[in-house]
């Protein structure tokens, strides 16, 4: 029996478990599709919240506070403007990344961060007003649902802002390494996704609530 026969139990020749010339794995692409799939599962969390909103839209219980009293679509345009502009600024940071412009990335991402903070401040101001009117989450099923949807989205924005601040530090310190660029692309997915979800929140909660 030869040393390299087909009987693997007896064959003691070295086994190659990978192809040495397979090339560099596409780490950025793999991270991107992995994070994108996570965002798809995140979208299903919002599906559950929108489903609850559909059920509780007019569930006021013993509360005399209705949706049209607490929701102002025109007032809701201000955070819409801040969030969409923040997304635009992040897009311009992406263009600066493409052009290998570190100062440009930091400048546009800083603007995006600032506008994201303004978005949250407007939301806080709006809901502080609701508290003053007694429209707290525990007042009715509708209000608990309204607070939850808006603030789950707001929580996403808050996490995105922390991530953005961390990215600013990493880009300033490390430059455009493969790891940093991969994180930048994932944050771009996360941040742009917040604009798409906000279209649903503004339409389904603010506009439908007032119509």
């Amino acid at each position: 029996m030869s040393r390299h026969d087909n009987n693997r139990y007896r064959d003691r020749s070295p086994v190659t478990l990978w192809a040495p010339d397979a090339g560099h794995p596409d780490a950025i692409g793999l991270r991107s599709i992995g994070f994108w799939l996570y965002m798809m599962s995140d979208a299903m969390i919002f599906a559950a919240l929108f489903a609850a909103h559909g059920v509780y839209t007019h569930a006021y219980g013993t509360s005399d506070i209705t949706a049209s009293q607490v929701i102002d679509p025109v007032e809701g345009l201000l955070p819409t403007l801040f969030l969409f502009t923040s997304v635009l600024m992040y897009g311009l940071a992406s263009v600066a990344l493409k052009n290998d412009d570190r100062a440009g990335v930091v400048r546009w991402m800083g603007a995006s961060l600032g506008l994201g903070v303004l978005f949250l401040l407007v939301e806080v101001w709006e809901f502080a007003g609701l508290v003053g009117e007694g429209a707290v989450p525990q007042a009715s099923a509708f209000l608990s649902d309204f607070w939850t949807i808006v603030w789950v989205h707001g929580g996403h924005v808050f996490v995105g802002l922390i991530w953005m601040a961390a990215m600013l530090i990493q880009i300033s310190r490390e430059g455009f390494t493969e790891t940093v660029v991969g994180r930048f692309i994932n944050l771009r997915i996360f941040w742009f996704f917040q604009a798409v979800i906000w279209v649903c929140v503004y339409t389904y909660v603010y506009l439908m609530g007032a119509s």
Binding site: D26, L92, T177
Partner: peptide, 23 residues
């Protein structure tokens, strides 16, 4: 990493168009 297709896909015109369309 800046030659990655997902980096190269960035476009000012498309981001501005998305902003205008959304608003």
């Amino acid at each position: 990493p800046l030659t990655h297709p997902e980096v190269r896909s960035a476009s000012s015109a498309m981001y501005i168009a998305a902003f205008v369309l959304g608003i």
